[in-house]
């Protein structure tokens, strides 16, 4: 069973957040990938993200293998953090719209990081190095089943919205 992403969460995950995708292989070895340009689907029940086609090969493999995925979004300026757990449905080539979302995301992320005192040069270098290391992006589409509030503190890990069918 899936859950829907409301307006507040949509605005949050399409803002200047840092985005990381977690998967695991059949030996239960985890794999991480940085993701850019998250976009919530029109039906609010799917989410697309762009990850490096080369540097995140293991992630793409794991998604095809078992489909289990976790994506964490964290805003540098407030530490507000949310984690979506769900399953993968497809991997495709990126469209012009996806790449425009990636560009917007990188710019808002740089601005957010700069706001906490890390110089723009340093963050830009980070983004540029990542662009160099992942010139080709792949789009993955996932369907959320559970959403957690991961903001640090005593309430971290509590569900924001949980599908009754999910365990």
């Amino acid at each position: 069973m899936t859950v829907s992403i409301d307006d507040v969460l949509k605005a949050f995950i399409e803002g200047g957040v840092s985005v990381s995708v977690g998967t695991c292989d059949s030996d239960l070895a985890p794999a991480l990938a940085r993701a850019w340009g998250p976009r919530v689907g029109g039906d609010r029940r799917s989410l697309s993200l762009c990850i490096s086609a080369v540097a995140s090969g293991k992630t793409l493999h794991n998604l095809r293998d078992n489909g289990r995925v976790a994506v964490t979004f964290s805003l540098p300026t407030s530490y507000k953090t949310a984690q979506i757990k769900g399953y993968w449905i497809e991997t495709t080539e990126t469209t012009a719209e996806d790449l425009a979302a990636v560009e917007r995301h990188r710019e808002t992320f740089i601005t957010a990081t700069e706001a906490i005192g890390v110089s723009r040069d340093v963050v830009q270098l980070y983004v540029q190095r990542e662009l160099l290391s992942s010139p080709v992006l792949a789009k993955i589409v996932i369907v959320p089943e559970q959403i957690f509030d991961q903001t640090p503190g005593p309430g971290a890990g509590s569900p924001l919205i949980t599908s009754p069918a999910a365990s």
Partner: peptide
């Protein structure tokens, strides 16, 4: 600790978890 790090673990049933 200049930049945050990200860590991924997974349960025995294969559900991943990502945390900063």
């Amino acid at each position: 600790g200049m930049f945050p790090s990200v860590v991924c673990t997974c349960s025995r049933t294969g559900i991943p978890n990502v945390t900063y």
